[in-house]
Design a protein around this nucleic acid. Sequence first.
DNA 1: TCCATATTTCGATGATAATGGAAACTTAAT
DNA 2: ATTAAGTTTCCATTATCATCGAAATATGGA
Lengths: 230, 230
Amino acid sequence: MLINPNPNIAEVAALLSEPSRAIILTTLLDGRFHTAGELARMAAIQPQTASHHLTKLEQNNLITMEKHGRYRYYQLVNEDIAQIIEGFLTISRPAEIRSFSQSKQAKALQRARTCYDHLAGNLGVMVTEAMVQADYLDKTDKDFIVTEHGERFFYDFGLDLSSIKKKRRAFSRMCLDWSERKHHLAGALGCAFTTQLFELGWIERVPSIRAVEVTQKGAAGFKKYLSLDV
Amino acid sequence: MLINPNPNIAEVAALLSEPSRAIILTTLLDGRFHTAGELARMAAIQPQTASHHLTKLEQNNLITMEKHGRYRYYQLVNEDIAQIIEGFLTISRPAEIRSFSQSKQAKALQRARTCYDHLAGNLGVMVTEAMVQADYLDKTDKDFIVTEHGERFFYDFGLDLSSIKKKRRAFSRMCLDWSERKHHLAGALGCAFTTQLFELGWIERVPSIRAVEVTQKGAAGFKKYLSLDV
DNA sequence: TCCATATTTCGATGATAATGGAAACTTAAT
DNA sequence: ATTAAGTTTCCATTATCATCGAAATATGGA
């Protein structure tokens, strides 16, 4: 790694400092692919303008693109970028809430949402802490370690840990939650666990924002497997 | 705390996105006071321009000012801001190193420097980890907890923990080190400990940059008290 | 082949904001 | 009092950049 007494903060910050780009990036925080047009609509700008921003973000390695037919799908480059942006949310003053529906959205996001591809918000933190409590996970510096109990737990839950470990991506990480200011489970394990929650029908996406909701089935499951009341 | 689905990242980022302001802020990272003129010289801009930036940074609560005579002394508002900026250094691509003396500076900074008012760099991380190793500190979420052993250690070291705890500032915190990417000891305790290192003559400032150097006396001390070879 | 849709490239416009010169203000020193 | 130094206010200049209209390119479907 190259270390420098005067690193170039400004360049990176400039990319986040433009309102339209900030909207695009927070939209991509859900970890899913979005088309250029979709992102333009989210930011309320013309497609040309969005294209301009997307090129810039791609050149600076914040996002990547995949062409499929006439669509171009954009995604955050990796989880690190997501963490950086989430981290930024922790320090940025929230904009004023203008409408009732906005405050409802805010509450939904605080309750439960996806951060990149894993679970965040109050639910994400509660689940993670329950796992630590139950001795399924051990906390270290920046990672969680799956204990022996944990191996069994995740196996019972239908996850194949050995195949997850094979992925090039970090296996199990801590991600700082901007609304809770505590850590939740991230990394390949966080992703796999969250995917499984969707598969099992324990949680469902709330349309249009990256909030998620716990289903009846989910509430029962969280209670049974993690002694959680949600 | 107000939570918002679309918090205003852009505003905060914009403050960091201007090269001159970024230089001013990284200069202030040493936690000390600097005059307006000094900061202008660092950023290689005219005093009027610096004044303009400083006003802006002050209005946005990143820095504070104290008037003393005809000088105006500026300082980062608090340690949180320092952490945010240090955090940003972690993700920003370092600028090219242009000269030999710059790379020497870079190495000195990586070895040991002050971050706000506590010790950072390889030395800061090593010292902190030695304390954890020796069971003087316990790691938690975002803080270190001083153990019973630790109470005695710091007392022997000449620090009055009870008076430090009385300060309004957070007692003991983890700060992410941008060159080491590990945590070092921050907060009031980190400050007091570092101040004591200066007092004891274990470390000395390197003129003009925020690097510090370990003295012979310091090397012996670190070895004796923390079994550290520096 | 022709049309519709998604996206980009080009070019012009307009807004924002960093910059520094000139002058004013404040404080210290003599 | 007068001068010098540090800093700010005011103002004009300039550069940057987001934005969008128009046109071009690419792809899919009929």
